[in-house]
Amino acid sequence: MSLGIVVALAAEARVLTETVPLAGEGIDIAPGLRLRLCGMGPEAAAQAAEALLAEGAGALLAFGTAGALAPALRPGTLLLPERVLFSGRDYAVATPWRSRVAAQIHGEVVSGPLLTAAMACARSAEKRALHARSGAVAVDMESGAVAAVAAAADKPFLALRALVDPVERDLPRSALVAVDAYGRLRPFALLAALARRPWEIAALLRLGREMSAALQSLRSAWRRIGPVGIAP
């Protein structure tokens, strides 16, 4: 069965392939594996998922990073959720597929629910409230939309995420304007933001290290799984 993979950020795509697709476009990265770079947000993710199905994908994978909602989850922790929560719905992943992938990772993998939100969750208080209200252990902006498209088409769905920011930490405001929808640096916007909030430099550097830890966890997992092992 061919697999369509949805990623939001260029850095996430580079975990899977040296040739990053153009924004909003898709490429074949291995026999039976097609990747689409969608940019952040559920609407863009849904469009990418629908395009992959139209191109012949028989299953969908949401791949990339997420933010922690539950206490004690550290940067780099891998998440293979059993359920994804989005827009008032609860979507189950394909259980046999998830079990096969988890067995190949050979390490600790968190299985708790993943929540998909329409906007970035920047404040610790907001993240704690989301955890208390939903029970989700992490939050992203794409997986639930991909799950909804898969469910509507009666296709298998899976999400594989690595955590970046822990729940007890606010995201620096400058981080929210420093990159575009695909995670690419906007240097002039970053400089302008830091001119207004220079004390955020340390927090930005720490966030960069946490992002690196998450991407390294994804790379390690991908080396173990590979194009053959990820097949549904």
Rank of each mutant, 00 (worst) to 15 (best):
L78H: 09
L79V: 14
L79F: 03
L80E: 02
L80D: 01
P81K: 01
P81L: 07
E82A: 12
E82T: 13
R83Y: 10
R83G: 08
R83I: 08
R83W: 13
V84C: 08
V84Q: 03
V84F: 02
L85F: 11
L85W: 02
L85M: 10
L85R: 02
F86M: 04
S87M: 12
S87G: 12
S87E: 15
S87N: 15
G88F: 09
G88S: 07
G88T: 09
G88H: 13
G88P: 13
D90E: 15
D90M: 04
A92C: 06
A92M: 05
A92E: 07
A92Q: 05
A92Y: 08
A92I: 10
A92F: 06
A92K: 11
V93D: 00
V93Q: 01
A94F: 12
A94H: 15
A94Q: 10
T95S: 12
T95P: 15
T95R: 13
P96S: 00
P96H: 00
W97T: 05
W97S: 05
W97Q: 02
W97G: 01
W97P: 01
R98W: 06
R98D: 02
S99N: 14
R100D: 03
R100H: 12
R100P: 06
V101G: 04
V101M: 07
A102R: 12
A103F: 00
Q104W: 02
Q104S: 12
Q104M: 14
Q104I: 01
I105V: 15
I105Y: 11
I105E: 04
H106P: 00
H106D: 15
G107C: 02
G107L: 00
V109K: 04
V109A: 03
V110Q: 04
V110C: 10
V110G: 02
S111Q: 14
G112D: 10
P113L: 03
L114G: 01
L114F: 07
L114D: 00
L114E: 02
T116Q: 09
T116W: 12
A117P: 02
A117Q: 14
A117D: 08
A118W: 11
M119G: 06
A120M: 11
A120C: 09
C121H: 05
C121G: 03
C121D: 01
R123Y: 05
R123F: 04
S124H: 09
S124L: 08
S124V: 02
S124D: 00
A125N: 03
A125P: 01
A125G: 10
E126K: 10
E126N: 05
E126Y: 09
E126Q: 14
E126M: 11
K127Q: 04
K127Y: 00
K127R: 15
A129T: 07
A129K: 12
H131M: 06
H131A: 10
A132C: 06
A132D: 06
A132I: 02
A132Y: 04
R133W: 13
R133F: 07
R133K: 14
S134K: 07
S134C: 12
G135K: 04
G135S: 05
G135I: 09
A136S: 06
A136I: 09
A136W: 09
A136D: 07
V137H: 06
V137W: 15
V137M: 13
A138E: 03
A138D: 08
V139K: 11
V139E: 08
